[in-house]
């Protein structure tokens, strides 16, 4: 769940070259790939659902009849509801800057955007603890004003934003750069102001890429474990998100509930996969 790889959506068709491998080696490569996928992705998925329904449908439903579980689900939805819109805006702004303006540090900004992909989420969480924790840099000042960030919702949101801010920007920046801005310029000479230009010209051009980025961002913000784990403090009914709650249940040997809740995340991943495929096809067609 944690590992969402951004594939290059422009590479949807495989060129058939004359140098294609012989039949049997092609079969070998295909079976290795399919076998690996089956072992690494499909099997775990099957096991999750199998374990979730070990005590039948009733056992499954019962798992959700629990205050801590419903709270965790609510909290995760809340975090996503704050994170995704913010990161959509941020991603749009960043992609706009990178693709439309020439400025010093443009290269730097565009590699900074990939930071969450190569910084361990745990470290991201730690940074916020060091900044806002009780012993942290701003800790005393925050305490004085009665503001709680670490071990509370703001901390969880902050670290989730950090982990997921890459998705929208990373999908959009290359797309907007490739499209250029001739149409925007045409809109301006026709008397459109910045707002009209964005809504009528830019947005329709990038909407599938944007949707694709939002879907990925959403999936990751609901599934994030590492960064959130550091800042949340694992307080039941308070700061446990769904992934953290699953770990708690599992450690308490409540296997059916643990897998039942996990199956919800797995389902989210499947829905994401389907939506991602659909948006990629749409982008290819557009």
């Amino acid at each position: 769940m944690a590992a969402i790889i951004i594939s290059d959506p422009t590479r949807t068709t495989r060129p058939r070259k004359a140098t294609a491998e012989s039949l049997w080696s092609r079969w070998l490569i295909i079976s290795i790939a399919v076998g690996f996928m089956g072992l690494m992705f499909v099997l775990p998925l099957v096991i999750i659902f199998q374990e979730a329904f070990r005590k039948g449908w009733e056992g499954f439903v019962q798992a959700f009849d629990d205050r801590a579980t419903t709270h965790a689900i609510w909290l995760t939805l809340k975090v996503a509801a704050i994170t995704v819109p913010l990161n959509t805006l941020f991603g749009l702004a960043a992609a706009w800057c990178i693709s439309r303006f020439q400025f010093r540090g443009r290269r730097f900004l565009s590699s900074l955007i990939e930071l969450p992909l190569w910084v361990s989420p745990v470290i991201a969480g730690m940074v916020y603890v060091l900044l806002f924790g009780a012993q942290g840099l701003f800790g005393p000042a925050l305490k004085e004003h009665g503001i709680k960030i670490i071990f509370a919702l703001p901390g969880i949101v902050l670290s989730t934003i950090f982990v997921t801010f890459t998705f929208v920007a990373r999908v959009l920046a290359p797309q907007m750069e490739a499209q250029g801005q001739a149409e925007e310029e045409a809109a301006m000479t026709l008397g459109a102001n910045g707002w009209q230009m964005f809504w009528r010209v830019t947005l329709p051009k990038i909407k599938w890429g944007l949707l694709y980025g939002i879907i990925l961002c959403n999936a990751r913000s609901m599934g994030e474990f590492g960064a959130v784990s550091v800042v949340s403090g694992h307080i039941r009914n308070k700061t446990n998100t769904v992934p953290l709650h699953i770990e708690v249940l599992y450690n308490e040997y409540q296997f059916v509930p643990a897998f039942a809740v996990a199956s919800v995340l797995a389902l989210l991943a499947l829905v994401t996969l389907i939506l991602k495929t659909l948006t990629t096809t749409q982008r290819g067609a557009a």
């Binding site: 310029e185 045409a186 301006m188 000479t189 026709l190 008397g191 459109a192 102001n193």
Partner: peptide, 8 residues
């Protein structure tokens, strides 16, 4: 540009 509205 949008104030000038030159046909382009």
């Amino acid at each position: 540009a949008y104030e000038r509205k030159a046909g382009f």
